[in-house]
Design a binder for these strands. Structure first.
Length: 493
RNA sequence: CGGGGCGUAGCGCAGUCUGGUAGCGCGUCUGCCUUGGGCGCAGAAGGUCGUCGGUUCGAAUCCGGCCGCCCCGACCA
């Protein structure tokens, strides 16, 4: 008698069979964690809160970088690189900056085999405003030197209390833009321009609808005059801040004496901006589109846009199919489609179907002996259940079409989801009832005290004041005091 | 740091209540077989049961300390 018979509970159960993911509806964070690991996007490492980004995950990041970098260059920015270590004293110059960042900063206290004296320590950059400003001060003399438009691709470290793969890791990869301008108006224009770039990237490439708007006083970046963000809704109806753009005013310029001589011969402080998105976007991508079968990546960013699965048993069959598949792959590649041919004979087709669904291949092409006979192939889009069969000559064009339609459909699906989970909320009762249901458009009296009370009592925080939400006066949901317009509240990552 | 859960084979877990010297599924390896939705059969390798100490003839199991991980909150991109 086997042990499985003696102990029925030893028989494989649905949840621990190593095959299926936890269901989104039952265990969203379990689903997310499992998906990240099973799709081989990233692993937890032995370093607290730091992850190993695996090739499948890094490929998505590379595609994001490629697109974003192009957008930055198109708007006149250049890449540069600044030190990972920042003198501790720099960070301390901007009061609000240091006060807010200090708790999350890792400090280098020993180097060269001995303790560094107080005052000569370094912090590992949590963000680079300070050290970049040090350079800006050297670079700027005249109004003719402006604007300075710099971007840096880098890693930063923030000692977060509760890390989560991609969403909040101790070390993460990002880009940070830093610019200097002669006037306040130019800096504001730049801040909003880059917010638009982020919106376009999120919506056109990630297929993720976002709300563009202004952050409240208490949610502002430490040291900024104004912070703007794009906010997205994940499938668990929680909000995720997907990108931020800051109008820094002259705060850092004053601390670092970043000045220029104007046409009129006056010494003036520069006006500055900074803006960034991070590997968090990969988490956003996953939580926006993926399903219980695994990863779904919008085609424009997908490392695997198309996979051709070869079917056949005899060497003759396989040989013929392989030749066709390779020719097809070459044509697809010529059409600009990222394609992979799977000719692994050790795994059955069923296994492969499940595997490519888990790993997020956008379109699957099945090619077997039966297809060759009829000169056809079978196509399957990752995000819909239907399969279709069509003539081999039409495959390249059709795959291209499917990728385009899929890109649009993913966006529309996500937008419909967000819109059906966005509500106007006017009373405390409604607030209580809908706190977990998505984005709440509420009147708020504008005070940090009320903001905090709402957060403490209902768990929702201000996300941003949307640009395209008409601001009409009303009464604060909590206090009844006057409000200038509705603002988005939600539970947030 | 507060609340909850968990550390047993590469992965997912059972066994702990009731102490007797470790098991299931998946994966891996070998051979045969199979390939249109997670193939099948046969065989094999693989674990000082997180760690330290205590109780006991005997500890994965009971008791105590420590370490680590995950989830929910506070911090945050």
């Amino acid at each position: 008698m086997s042990d499985a018979q003696k102990n029925p509970q030893n028989a494989p159960k649905k949840k621990n069979d190593n095959l299926s993911l936890p269901l989104r509806a039952e265990d969203f964070s379990g689903w997310y964690n499992d998906l990240v690991k099973r799709a081989k996007l990233a692993d937890n490492s032995d370093v607290r809160g730091s992850m190993v980004i695996r090739p499948n995950g890094y490929a998505i990041w590379e595609n994001m970088q490629k697109v974003l970098d192009g957008m930055f260059k198109d708007t006149g920015h250049q890449n540069a690189y600044f030190p990972v270590l920042i003198p501790e004293s720099y960070l301390a110059k901007e009061k609000k900056h240091v006060a807010d960042f200090a708790p999350q900063v890792a400090v280098v206290t020993h180097a060269g085999g001995k303790a560094l004296p107080e005052g000569e320590r370094y912090v590992i950059r949590p963000t680079s405003e300070t050290i970049i400003n040090r350079s800006f001060t050297n670079w700027v003399q005249s109004y003719r030197d402006l604007p300075i438009l710099i971007n840096q691709w880098a890693n930063v470290i923030r000692w977060e209390m509760r890390p989560r793969l991609f969403l909040r890791t101790t070390e993460f990869l990002w880009q940070e833009g830093h610019t200097c301008h002669a006037t306040e108006a130019e800096a504001t224009e730049e801040t909003l321009r880059m917010l638009d770039v982020y919106e376009r990237f999120a919506e056109d490439y990630m297929a993720m609808p976002v709300i563009k708007g202004q952050k409240t006083e208490s949610e502002k970046f430490p040291g900024a005059v104004n912070t703007y963000s794009i906010e997205a809704m994940m499938q668990d109806k929680k909000a995720l801040q997907a990108g931020t753009s800051h109008m820094l005013g002259q705060n850092f310029a004053k601390m670092f004496d970043t000045m220029y001589q104007s046409k009129e011969g006056q010494k003036e402080y520069v006006w500055q901006t900074s803006w960034g998105v991070s590997t968090r976007l990969i988490g956003a991508l996953i939580m926006t589109h993926s399903d219980d079968q695994g990863l779904i990546v919008p085609p424009k960013l997908a490392p695997m846009q198309c996979v051709i699965v070869i079917i056949g048993k005899t060497p003759e069959e396989r040989g013929a199919v392989r030749a066709k598949a390779q020719a097809l792959a070459a044509d697809l590649k010529k059409a600009g489609i990222r394609v992979l041919v799977d000719d692994d004979e050790t795994k059955g087709p069923g296994f492969k179907y499940a595997e490519y669904e888990l790993r997020g291949a956008c379109v699957r092409v099945d090619l077997g002996p039966k297809d060759l006979e009829k000169n056809q192939a079978m196509l399957k889009r990752r995000d819909v259940a239907e399969k279709e069969t069509l003539g081999l000559d039409a495959v390249v064009a059709r795959v291209g079409e499917l990728l385009e339609v899929m890109q649009k459909d993913l966006f529309n699906k996500a937008k419909t989801f967000r819109d059906t989970h966005t509500f106007e909320v006017n009373t405390v009762e409604e607030l209580k009832a809908k706190a977990d249901d998505g984005f709440l458009l509420m009147h708020w009296d504008g005070t940090p005290e009320t903001e905090k009370r709402i957060k403490d009592e209902f768990g929702v925080t201000t996300r941003n004041r949307p640009f395209d939400l008409k601001q009409e006066p009303g009464k604060c949901v909590l206090t009844g005091n006057p409000s200038t317009g509705r603002i988005v509240f939600a539970k947030a990552y």
